[in-house]
Computed example of a mutant assay.
Amino acid sequence: MDIIRFAELKPEPWRNGGGVTREIASHPKAASAQDGAWDWRVSIADVGTAGDFSTFPGMERVITVIDGELLLLTVSGEEHPLEKYRPFRFSGEAASASALPTGDIRDLNVIARTGEFKGYTSIIELSKKRAHPVFEGQLAVLLEGKASVTPGAEPSEVAVSADGSEDGTAAAPAEPVERAESVELARYDAVVGSDTRSPEILGRGFLAVISIDRVEHAHS
């Protein structure tokens, strides 16, 4: 089970000095959060100064305000008021600038290379009774509240068949499955998804679930 601790992420200053970015994950892994050598990147940025956003030619962006009240984002001359927890998709190569009418904000950024990957951000409310699984190709970031994560069940822990046998052989007596201990998450920690043993998150608060899907190309 892979957990990316926000407190351990290195802040990278923006090229224009308007804020800092902490990269959560990228593919392929870049030497710097700003070098653009990746096909997709997930990051959290602190915006403390109004001004232009960096452009990312050939990329598509999804931005979500996760702390603070409002970001006024102007994209290609059109103004968009972005409220907290409302993801907004726009072209990375479009001229874009921000205004901060209610003060500093923090945002979650998903940037993906157009035609190769597609990024999605969903904001969900956590439950203390029903665990939320994190699958392969996903990252789950705790935005607020209190939550813990456990590894999901191993494939071998699933019951074999209704009559207790498999391939004509008698099933061995089932041994009690020892569940893994839960790990507490701090604010903005990220859980990396898996399809072999999908982590499961329980708690109270809000979670951002980021999905990065590879674009399938039609063969002629």
Rank of each mutant, 00 (worst) to 15 (best):
V134E: 07
M1E: 08
A45I: 01
R113E: 10
P173Q: 04
V110K: 03
A208D: 04
T114N: 10
A153M: 15
E154L: 15
G119C: 03
F206L: 15
P13F: 03
E79L: 14
K10A: 14
Q34V: 11
E200D: 11
R204P: 07
P28D: 02
L73A: 02
L9W: 03
V149C: 04
R197K: 11
S161H: 09
V192F: 02
I212K: 01
I210L: 06
S76P: 07
D107T: 11
T196H: 12
R204T: 15
E79Q: 14
G68E: 08
L202E: 10
A140Q: 03
L72E: 08
I44D: 02
D39V: 05
Q138K: 09
E125N: 14
L72F: 02
D104R: 11
A170W: 14
A153N: 14
K118L: 12
P155G: 05
L70M: 07
E184R: 13
G19S: 08
R89A: 15
I24W: 05
V215M: 08
A140M: 03
Y85F: 11
S98F: 02
E69A: 12
V134C: 07
I123Q: 00
E216M: 14
K128E: 15
G145Q: 07
P101E: 13
R22Q: 09
D52S: 15
